[in-house]
């Protein structure tokens, strides 16, 4: 009995990330905003998963190509089409569900790419210092002041319609400088810490110092940034789509709004306009709230309360 208990203790000590995850979770649970954000995100994730169901029930529910043979214009909600149809008779609900999938895809892939880029550039700049640092940070400054939207508009004007993946790539390429600045600062301060010097004295290579000692210490911050980057990526994509520069082959919420606007249903069909609009606001809001809550979890100042004397 005793030895079993001992074993359990040892196992939990073996997985410190589990302990810190549980600790973080207990802080997170006390954060109302974070909880709301998480619940919303779960709902959106379920929506994204459910997006495969309508086309499977009946091909007319295909968000892009499925047209209700009996309907040729915009119709309000009905039993057959819970949220109504658009001007071609396509089901709005299935478009909305597909939009959730696209939003997650765009948001998360752009965020992952920009954070990976930002972390590697930030760590390189911070660790190498000197002219590498100057060079990379000036580059970051240059990109940071460029208006993303304008550049994408120009590119699409030059190259014609951009695919959704090109858009994701462009967003990622324009959104890394903020991340890299923060990561660079963190790296700079970590570089001065005695445990890095201790590793140097032990003979560790630069490679080892960067990947074994610095990276694990900046990753939590990188994850935090990821949530904020998701928000900005979703908004950028929606804006592009609404302006008519989106990928015509995908159904995103921005695209839906563009259709509403282009076919002149802005004020005629609230059942068509409101769902994508509300969804865009809510999903960005929920990622933001999640980020704020994580910020609190990661903020070391809030963890010091139990230190006395």
């Amino acid at each position: 009995m005793v030895s079993k208990q001992n074993n359990n203790i040892k196992r939990s000590e073996r997985y410190p990330w589990l302990i810190s995850f549980l600790e973080g979770w207990s802080i997170f649970r006390q954060n109302l905003l974070g909880k709301i954000g998480l619940v919303l995100l779960i709902i959106f994730a379920l929506m994204a998963l459910c997006s495969y169901i309508p086309p499977w029930i009946n091909p007319m529910y295909n968000p892009m190509t499925g047209v209700d043979p009996e309907i040729t214009s915009c119709t309000p909600p009905s039993l057959r089409h819970w949220l109504g149809t658009d001007f071609m008779g396509r089901d709005i609900l299935s478009q909305l569900l597909a939009g959730a999938r696209i939003a997650f895809m765009v948001g998360i892939s752009a965020a992952v790419m920009s954070v990976v880029l930002g972390v590697s550039i930030g760590m390189t700049a911070g660790y190498m210092g000197r002219f590498v640092d100057t060079l990379l940070m000036r580059l970051a400054d240059m990109i940071m002041v460029m208006p993303t939207l304008l550049v994408v508009l120009l590119l699409s004007a030059v190259f014609g319609q951009l695919s959704i993946w090109t858009i994701v790539l462009i967003i990622a390429l324009f959104r890394w400088p903020g991340v890299s600045r923060i990561i660079r600062g963190q790296t700079l301060s970590l570089k001065q810490r005695p445990f890095i010097e201790a590793a140097k004295v032990a003979g560790a290579s630069h490679f080892r110092i960067i990947f074994v000692h610095i990276m694990p210490n900046v990753l939590p911050l990188a994850f935090l940034f990821m949530t904020f980057r998701v928000t900005s990526a979703i908004i950028t994509e929606a804006a592009l789509a609404f302006l008519g520069f989106g990928d015509p082959g995908t159904v995103s919420w921005g695209m839906m709004l563009q259709w509403v606007w282009k076919t002149g249903h802005m004020f005629q069909a609230p059942y068509w306009l409101l769902p994508p609009g509300i969804c865009i606001s809510l999903i960005t809001l929920s990622f933001y709230m999640l980020g704020r809550a994580m910020d609190e979890v990661l903020d070391p100042r809030l963890r010091r309360e139990d230190q006395t004397d």
Partner: peptide, 27 residues
């Protein structure tokens, strides 16, 4: 080798004692 002043700063918080002590051997 060197022993640093502040033991709260000279050990990597993300690495276990075994990882830390065995690191020079690995290197």
């Amino acid at each position: 080798q060197m022993i640093f002043q502040d033991p709260y700063q000279s050990l990597n918080p993300q690495r276990s004692i075994y990882d830390t002590v065995s690191e020079p051997l690995k290197i």
